[in-house]
Design a protein around this nucleic acid. Sequence first.
DNA 1: TCATCTCCGACTTGACTGGTCCTGTATTAG
DNA 2: CTAATACAGGACCAGTCAAGTCGGAGATGA
Lengths: 151, 151
Amino acid sequence: MLRLSKKADYALIAMAHLALKPGSSSAREIAESYDIPTELMAKVLQRLTRRGLLTSQQGTRGGYQLSRAATGITVADVIQAIDGPVSVTACSAHADRCGQFAKCNVRDPLWRIRELIVSALSRTTVSELANDNDAVNAVRSAQLVAVHGRV
Amino acid sequence: MLRLSKKADYALIAMAHLALKPGSSSAREIAESYDIPTELMAKVLQRLTRRGLLTSQQGTRGGYQLSRAATGITVADVIQAIDGPVSVTACSAHADRCGQFAKCNVRDPLWRIRELIVSALSRTTVSELANDNDAVNAVRSAQLVAVHGRV
DNA sequence: TCATCTCCGACTTGACTGGTCCTGTATTAG
DNA sequence: CTAATACAGGACCAGTCAAGTCGGAGATGA
Ligand code: SF4
Ligand code: SF4
């Protein structure tokens, strides 16, 4: 199903949230804004911090904020920070994970498809996430029709 | 991690195999060619048949073959036949699967990314899978070095 | 000092996937 | 006719992994 993990989903929500609020926000604040389990959101933010996408401030007035400009952070960065490298096939990451790698006839083509997906994810920045959402909300009704029409 | 299921992987292998062999091949024959559990491969082929990508012939001389030209079947077709619709987020498929859908701020941008991925998968056909592999096999040694060097 | 907040690893649980097994049906070689 | 072969499809099991929880340590400001 090619689904991305819920944690990555939460991470993107948080990043988009922080992109719109220059001041720092606490884990609890973000979690409650979107009905996300507080503890889980905290853990996600921690991991994003460790990967260098966020900076944290401890203590009573603490919180998180983006470590760089939102335009410099891509969706791929966020996803990989949470879920690890994007591996479409079992062989992408560690070759020994698949018993077919010797006889496999689709290994390299699939590897190329992985590259396509990664580049697609790298093309969207966090800032676009936030702005895109704003634009969508502004003309929500019209947009929805157009989007669904494309299906 | 955006990984596709092993069954889908096997399905692609089988499709590529059948694309090179115009005559019908049995489930066992394909399974043994690539060290895939026979029963599992059989089930995958059955599902592909039910979705109309393959035609089956029962009996002693039976087997499977592509129902249309390999150039008319995309990787997206195969994956969706096995794993169901590509849903990057929980809300892609059934909107009620996610408690955040009301307040979510990345719903629509992510939906657009999903479209990008699907179109990437739809751009590669089964015939390209097979041919791509042929080319790779021809210059296998050189290719392998290049691929691993890029990692 | 002390309350409050973040940080971080360990843990539990529940869904899901890969894989197996078993029964039934169609086709054909002999 | 019969036996062997191959597809069809459901039930079932086990290992894995993600989602979510808990408890403690450390930092900070009042
Ligand atoms: S080697 Fe082939 S079968 Fe194994 S994970 Fe890679 S693409 Fe899939
Ligand atoms: S609504 Fe938002 S949080 Fe829920 S699955 Fe969709 S994108 Fe993710």
